[in-house]
């Protein structure tokens, strides 16, 4: 009976992961398709990657996206971490509900609404849309994601550690730099990576809030996809998947802090 459960569990896991990864794997495989027809296999080839790198427009958009992602990621990480600290440390302050709401809302709010709202704001305040407005829009979107990650880390944080630091002579700023920050660093780093990914990925906020000189990669891909499936987009998608895969791996490595590794080795030692 126990075995039935194990079999069922494995079947569910296999089916689930097949559903999650199947489409992505297909895109990757077909990016190496030699044929011009997407669904007809014409042997292995990397010709579409060559075509891709020769596409100056696409490369320029990729550069814009990357720059915007890093800039907005940095802003979102700083503001999100501060927001998480504020929510965790200040207990109940006036308008806390509004503050928490404004942090968490962008996580689920339809992006068309947020994109439109920001655009109207920029137009009303007479700001020329372009790279800066793009960064601001993405930072606003990602801030909440960073805040949630950091807040979760802070929730498991033993407050007496900060008290101990201050007991040993560290002022509030030093205690934060020497104790709190190193301990929440994995969450902050993961938050940054997530913010970068969100920005790289976003089509809608970018479409509303960027200017003609700063077309992002998703905007470029979107306009191509509308025209139909091409092998070149397969190649582009594969590169994006590779990029995200690498940064995820990086995040996983950061998450596996030396502490976790040591715990593991200590556990093994105890069992031996």
């Amino acid at each position: 009976m126990k075995r039935d459960w194990t079999v069922a569990r494995l079947a569910v896991l296999c089916a689930g992961f097949a559903f999650l990864y199947g489409p992505i794997v297909l895109v990757v495989i077909y990016s190496f398709n030699g044929s011009r027809l997407v669904t007809v296999w014409g042997g292995w080839s990397t010709r579409w990657y060559g075509a891709l790198f020769a596409n100056r427009q696409l490369m320029a958009s990729a550069a814009t996206s990357l720059e915007a992602a890093i800039a907005s990621g940095a802003i979102a990480t700083i503001l999100g971490t501060l927001a998480a600290l504020a929510l965790d440390r200040f207990g109940r302050f006036r308008s806390r509900g509004l503050f928490a709401g404004a942090i968490y809302a962008p996580l689920v709010l339809p992006e068309v609404v947020m994109g439109l709202a920001l655009l109207l704001f920029f137009v009303a305040s007479g700001v020329e849309r372009g790279f800066v407005t793009l960064v601001v829009a993405h930072a606003t979107l990602s801030l909440g994601f960073v805040a949630i990650l950091v807040r979760a880390r802070l929730a498991g944080f033993d407050r007496s550690l900060e008290e101990a630091a201050s007991d040993l002579g560290a002022g509030p700023a030093t205690a934060f730099m020497r104790v709190t920050l190193p301990l929440i660093a994995p969450a902050v780093a993961t938050g940054f990576l997530l913010a970068v990914t969100l920005s790289l990925d976003d089509l809608i906020l970018a479409s509303f809030n960027t200017g003609p000189g700063s077309t992002t990669l998703p905007m470029r891909i979107y306009s191509e996809v509308r025209l139909g499936v091409t092998p070149q987009i397969n190649a582009m998608s594969t590169l994006l998947i590779g990029f995200v895969g690498t940064s995820l791996l990086l995040a996983a490595l950061i998450g596996r802090s030396p502490r976790g590794q040591l715990e593991g080795s200590a556990g093994r030692g105890a069992r031996d």
């Binding site: 489409p23 992505i24 990925d201 891909i221 499936v229 998608s237």
Partner: peptide, 10 residues
């Protein structure tokens, strides 16, 4: 974490 656009495109 992978691009939403890519996933829809797939």
């Amino acid at each position: 974490w992978t691009s939403a656009l890519v996933r829809v495109y797939a």
